[in-house]
Computed example of a mutant assay.
Amino acid sequence: MNDIKSFIAYVADGNSLTAEQSEKAFDLLMTGEATSAQVAGFLMSLRVKGETVDEITGAARSMRSKMLTIKAPEGAIDVCGTGGDAKGTLNVSTATAFVVAGAGAIVAKHGNRAASSKSGASDVLGALGIGLEANVDAVEKALAENGTAFLAAPLYHSAMRHVGPTRAELGTRTIFNLLGPLSNPGKVTRQITGVFGREWVEPLAQVLKAIGHEKAWVVHGAEGLDELSISGLSYISELDQGQIRNFEIIPEMAGLERSPIEEIIGGDAAFNAKAMREMLGGKKNAYRDAVVLNSAGALIVAGLTDDLKEGAVIAAKSIDSGAALAKLDGLASYTNEETTQ
């Protein structure tokens, strides 16, 4: 198969692609060699058939090969979610990035503007004064000296311009909803990633293994959250040194009380930014507990602890000492020194 028409016909007939075939097909999509109708036809053929681990792996390799990269220190981690859970919660993974950085991890946070919620990572960080168009030098400096940086997806994935308009017109989930968390410009090999559906937990761990990750947690929380849930059960697939194991946790395992999801529902970027600054400033509420829980998992992925309850203690100290808030303010300073030309 050498053209997109043959790939569309093959997948539409119910056949699955190898990783190599998928990479070739996505190379065609992301270099502008497919029309909008062909992009839509191929993406929806995959969706209806059901995307496989090999197909996601090939697509991720294609996307990663075309992204602008930065130099991230060894051991850097990403804390992100697929989005798409449509719950409208406060920005948990974004706040988690600062808490984990305050505890000593190096965090290259990859993210974008909201697609299905009112406030994505870029939205809330912009409201908090983070420069979203900081150039590569400024981002690398922030990562090296402040221990945290934000990688705004549009600046690093210019090839997405060939498929972005079609995705918007489709208005429904495609494989690209899964690819963002697999395509960190810092090429981190450690990450905790939330997914919008439980059925994607283990498959994405398998993809992360295939693209060379060292350690990862892929998580899905009760009530459909793309993060660890403070309201109940969470499902985790852990990748560690090439091995994958599946397990479940509840907040009590981290020494935390449960809270209903209604207590962490957010609003627009300004609302969520205010809530994040208050929480990082020491305000104790369900939002703090949700961030502490997710930070505990992230600290395990970062190798700073191997115990969830200890991770929660470390995360709480990062907040209460002011270290987490200092990382936020430091990132604002670094990213407003220079911006892209």
Rank of each mutant, 00 (worst) to 15 (best):
T94P: 06
G83A: 00
K71D: 15
N91A: 07
A76C: 04
D78Y: 00
G84R: 06
K66W: 08
V92K: 10
I70V: 15
C80L: 08
D78M: 04
I70A: 15
K66C: 04
D85G: 02
N91I: 08
M67I: 11
A86M: 11
C80N: 10
T69E: 14
D85R: 07
I77L: 01
I77A: 03
S65W: 15
E74H: 07
K87N: 00
S65G: 15
L68H: 09
I77T: 02
P73D: 13
L68I: 11
G84S: 06
S65K: 15
S93I: 07
C80W: 00
C80Q: 09
A76S: 14
K66G: 10
G75M: 04
L68C: 09
L90S: 11
I70R: 07
K66T: 10
G83W: 03
S93Y: 04
A76W: 05
V79F: 01
V79N: 02
M67A: 02
G81K: 08
T82F: 06
S65F: 15
T69N: 13
T69I: 15
T82Q: 00
D78Q: 05
K71W: 09
A86N: 14
C80F: 03
K71A: 15
A95N: 10
K66E: 10
K66M: 12
G75V: 09
K66Y: 05
T94N: 06
L90Q: 11
M67H: 04
N91P: 13
L68P: 06
N91Y: 04
A86W: 08
C80Y: 07
I77G: 02
E74Q: 12
G75N: 10
I70Y: 14
E74L: 12
K87M: 02
G75H: 07
A86G: 13
G81F: 03
T82D: 02
T82E: 02
G88F: 09
S65C: 14
M67R: 11
D85E: 02
V79S: 05
G84V: 07
V92H: 10
C80H: 07
T69R: 15
L68Q: 12
A86D: 05
D85H: 13
P73V: 15
M67N: 08
A95R: 03
S93M: 11
E74R: 12
A86L: 03
K87P: 00
S65M: 14
S65R: 15
A95G: 15
N91C: 05
A86V: 14
C80T: 13
A72K: 13
L68Y: 04
G83C: 01
K87G: 01
E74D: 12
S93N: 10
V79Q: 04
T89F: 01
L90Y: 12
S65T: 14
K87Y: 04
